[in-house]
Every structure is written in structure tokens, then in C-alpha cells.
Design a binder for these strands. Structure first.
Length: 490
DNA sequence: CTGGGTCAAGGAGTT
DNA sequence: AACTCCTTGACCCAG
């Protein structure tokens, strides 16, 4: 099933593409509302496929003939539905066109926005490997109405687990995998064959108290894995920052191993091959890097084989750079994912080229296809915090990328960042309808927490005082308003 | 439907 | 010790 045929609301929609104009329009409904008539009126001619050709304003609509009279099959379908509801039929077997006794409740019309996609700068590369994105597809996630949204990170709070029971949580997981199937198909349709699975696929699955086995979902997982395998998609995972294999606290290491076991179980049940790796960072240094590295090494050495076989390490931007990890990786035969952005922020004394060579030697030895991470800092970023935040998209591929390596693009715009690179470098054909315009004014700030309790409280108290001052302009403030200099702007 | 506060987990840095 | 940040999206409740 392709994107173009998905979903009930879309049943009469056409996604149209004008390849020469780099503009994509979607037309939502075959309707005869004034809005729609206005749109059709700007269509100049009908193409050989029966679709309208865009005018210079790039307004596209289905052929007017079809608009005025939906295809017979569709009308019959509607008639059948109407009959179910006990409505009268016309002699031609089609639905009754007169207003039923009960006034029809009109569904609120959802008008697809019109996207103007700017041209991209054309660049060249010798790279022909796969580009991937992580966990979330912005186009599918933002589908309206909300019931149409496709995503794999439904979750809940512990309180909801207690309130609704474990089956409620398991249902979330099932829905997530169901949507994963849709996303894999979307990726295939859009020539993206590399994807990171969300760690939130099964909420609390690795939780000490509320954890559960994924067996209940094995059929669906196998189905998703089979689809990915059929299309030769690579699926990987990236357990989060709380995975601390080097922690001095035994219970923290235990929790980390549970987390890894959950990810491995998911990949195993999907039937994903050895390329389905689990990437983690070195973790904290606990004030003593050499000792922590020893603990890390021991933890990894003692992992059960099904976890060890999928485990790979990645250089981070704070604690362990590539140079710190390489000796451990080489000794234990644990592959290293090279992250360009992290290496930029926390460089090794070894040049990237050499790190990559040594890393690739491990990947090769293990018979796993290498992968690297690519991201860029946000434009205008200066401070270390700003520089750590990922930009919306990536504008450049590194030089000398080998073809037998998959490149994970870590960018805020997710799949759009991949499509952006596909277009710039001519790597893959792109479906225009899948494109979204870039944010014109990206901030240099992080995506992180913007609120601050004290600042908020201060603001509230200030607002209150201003309100009071409004009511009583002559009145004095009883207290000086607290103002915090570090409060971020909205 | 929207906005704001908050969330399972761990560690580092600041005050 | 208490708090904030890391990254991040989604929950959840109030309006």
C-alpha cells in the first residue's frame, strides 16, 4: 500500500505532483463548496491522465468532470452505505441525492495546506550508500486529523499503567508496531532504506516493576521485520542516555542490561539480521575515566551473546570521544559508530580518516555493515550548548564516504533532512508530495527545556502585579518583581 | 483543540 | 542539597 492510497479521509483525494515546478499541492476533497469551485476555476487545462494541469499559480485539482460526478463505483459504495442506514435509493442504484430527514452533520473540512518547496543547491558526491533517519516521520506524524497520525512512540505515564493495567500498555506497543509497518512502506515508497526504531515502541518494557515480555506481539513484530527484510531495509536502535554500562552502581548496570535486552528482544522477534545493531554511548565518567572504562569493558564482556552481538559504541561530545573508545572496541571486537558532529565538538588526537579506518576494520571483522552518524550544529550556534543541538537539516555530506556504509542523518526535520540530501546530491528520486518546506528562521537554541520554575513563578507574579497595577494605576508594588536574567525568550 | 507543566531512567554542572 | 541541564516527544489536565 502506498502513501497515495492510505486512509479513509483521503479516499477521494489526489496527491498531485508537478515535477518541473518543484511545487507540490494536494487537493483534499471532491467537493463543490465555494472554496473548491474557486480552486478549480484556476485550472487551465486537463492533462491526458484526466488530471488538471497546474496554472502558473500551481493550483492543481482533479479533472472538473470527475469533481462534478464521482466515479460510479464510488457512488455505488456510498449508496450501499446509505442503504445500510436505511436511506432510500434512486432507481439507478445510486444514493439518494435529496437531503435526508435528519439534517446531515457535515464533517469539518480539512484543507490540505499548499507547500511551496524551494529549489535546493545541487552538489555532487561519489557516495551511493543509504541515508537514514531516526524514529519519527514528520509528515506521517503530523497528518490531520489526529486519528490519521502515524507514529511509533505512543507511551503513557506510570500512573496510567497503574490505573489502566498492563494490557493497556501492551496495546500501545501493538499500535506502535502496526504504524511501523506503515512507516516501512512509506520509507520504501520514498527510497529511504535505513531507519532507527524508536526505543519507545514498547513503553516500560524494560521497567523493573512494570516490564513485560514482547512475546504477545511476536506475530506483528515478525510481520514488520519481514517487510523490512523484503525491501532490504536496515533497522537499528539507539537505547537512550540512561543506559550506563560503566556505572559504579550495580542496579544502574542491571537496568541498563534490561534496556539492552528489551531492544535485542525486539530486533530478534522481528527477525532482523546482524546489521540491526544497538548503539550506545560510553556513558558518564564518574570522575575517573580509566576506571570507568575498565568497568564498561567488564560489563560488555559479560553480556549475553544475543545482546553482545548487536552492541556497538558511539563517540559522544562530552565524555568519551572516539579515541577513548577505540582501544576497548578493538580489544572486544565491538564496532564503533563514528559521529562527525560529536567528533567536531570533542575531537580525538587521531584524525577522522584514521578513526574511520580503524572502526571499519572492526565492522568488517564482525561481518556487519558499517554505519556513521551525521548531523550539523544549528546556524549561528556559538556556546557549547547551542553547538550541541542538531540543526533542522544537513547541508553537506562529508568527503570520501565509502559506499558500503550507511549514514544516519540526525536532524530535527528527520525524513525531510534525508529527502533534502537526496535532492541536493541527486541520490534518490523524490516524491514531491512528500516534501515540506524548511523552517525559514531556525533558532540556534536547543530543543531542550525552555521552562524554568523560578522564572515562571517570577513571571506569574510579575503578571499579577501588572494586572493589579492596571486595575489600580496609582497603586504601588508591594514587592520588587523578581527578574531572572537567564530567562529565555519565547 | 491548545497550551503548559511534566515525565521512567542517570549523570554532570551550577548555585 | 537542590536544582537545572542534557534530548525529546508525548502524556495529561485545565481551559
Amino acid at each position: 500500500m502506498s502513501l497515495l492510497s492510505r486512509g479513509p479521509v483521503r479516499r477521494s483525494a489526489r496527491l498531485m505532483t508537478v515535477s518541473t515546478m518543484d511545487v507540490c499541492i494536494t487537493e483534499p476533497q471532491f467537493d463543490t463548496t465555494p472554496t473548491f469551485k474557486r480552486r478549480i476555476s484556476s485550472v487551465e487545462k486537463v492533462g491526458p491522465d484526466g488530471y488538471a494541469i497546474a496554472t502558473s499559480e500551481a493550483i492543481i485539482a482533479p479533472a472538473p468532470e470527475e469533481v462534478c460526478s464521482p466515479p460510479v463505483a464510488k457512488r455505488q459504495k456510498r449508496a450501499a452505505k446509505a442503504e445500510e442506514k436505511g436511506m432510500a435509493k434512486d432507481p439507478d442504484g445510486l444514493e439518494h441525492t435529496e437531503t435526508p430527514t435528519k439534517p446531515k452533520r457535515r464533517k469539518k473540512e480539512i484543507v490540505e495546506p499548499v507547500y511551496i518547496i524551494p529549489e535546493v543547491e545541487k552538489k555532487t558526491t561519489t557516495y551511493r550508500g543509504r541515508l537514514g533517519y531516526a524514529c519519527l516521520n514528520t509528515v506521517m506524524r503530523n497528518k490531520k486529523p489526529a486519528s490519521e497520525s502515524v507514529f511509533c512512540s505512543r507511551t503513557c505515564r506510570i500512573d496510567s499503567v497503574k490505573k489502566n493495567g498492563i494490557d493497556f500498555v501492551k496495546d500501545l506497543g501493538r499500535k506502535n508496531v502496526q504504524d511501523l509497518l506503515t512507516l516501512i512502506q512509506w520509507n520504501e515508497d520514498n527510497h529511504i532504506r535505513f531507519f532507527r526504531l524508536s526505543s519507545e515502541m514498547f513503553p516500560f518494557a524494560s521497567h523493573e516493576k512494570y516490564g513485560y515480555s514482547l512475546d504477545y506481539c511476536s506475530d506483528l513484530l515478525a510481520q514488520a521485520g519481514a517487510l523490512a527484510n523484503k525491501y532490504k531495509h536496515r533497522l537499528t536502535t539507539h537505547p537512550g542516555q540512561y543506559t550506563q554500562l560503566g556505572s559504579p552502581k550495580p542496579n544502574v548496570v542491571e537496568s541498563s542490561i534490561r534496556e539492552l535486552a528489551y531492544h535485542a528482544e525486539m530486533l530478534d522477534l522481528m527477525g532482523v539480521g546482524p546489521d540491526g545493531v544497538m548503539i550506545i554511548h560510553g556513558g558518564g565518567v564518574y570522575g575517573d575515566k580509566p576506571t570507568t572504562l575498565k568497568r564498561l569493558k567488564e560489563s560488555i564482556r559479560n553480556l549475553p551473546p544475543n545482546i553482545f552481538n548487536r552492541l556497538v559504541l558511539e563517540n559522544d561530545e562530552m565524555c568519551f570521544n572516539a579515541e577513548d573508545l577505540l582501544p576497548l572496541c578493538e580489544e572486544l571486537n565491538v564496532p564503533l559508530v563514528f559521529d562527525y558532529h560529536h567528533d567536531n565538538l570533542f575531537p580525538s588526537s587521531i584524525p577522522p580518516k584514521e578513526i574511520i579506518q580503524r572502526a571499519n576494520a572492526i565492522w568488517k571483522k564482525r561481518g556487519i555493515r558499517p554505519k556513521q552518524h551525521l548531523s550539523e550544529q544549528r546556524p549561528g550556534a556559538v556556546t557549547i550548548l547551542e553547538r550541541r543541538a542538531h540543526s533542522d537539516r544537513c547541508e553537506n555530506l562529508p568527503p570520501d564516504l565509502p559506499d558500503d556504509m550507511d549514514l544516519m542523518i540526525e536532524a530535527k526535520d528527520k525524513e525531510q533532512a534525508v529527502l533534502h540530501l537526496h535532492r541536493m546530491y541527486g541520490l534518490q528520486p523524490v516524491i514531491q508530495a512528500s516534501l515540506r518546506p524548511p523552517n525559514k528562521n531556525p533558532t540556534k537554541q536547543t530543543q531542550g527545556r525552555k521552562s524554568n520554575k523560578r522564572a515562571k513563578a517570577a513571571k506569574n507574579s510579575l503578571d499579577k502585579q501588572l494586572e493589579e497595577a492596571d486595575e489600580n494605576p496609582a497603586g504601588d508594588f508591594e514587592e520588587e518583581p523578581i527578574v531572572h536574567g537567564d530567562e529565555e525568550d519565547a
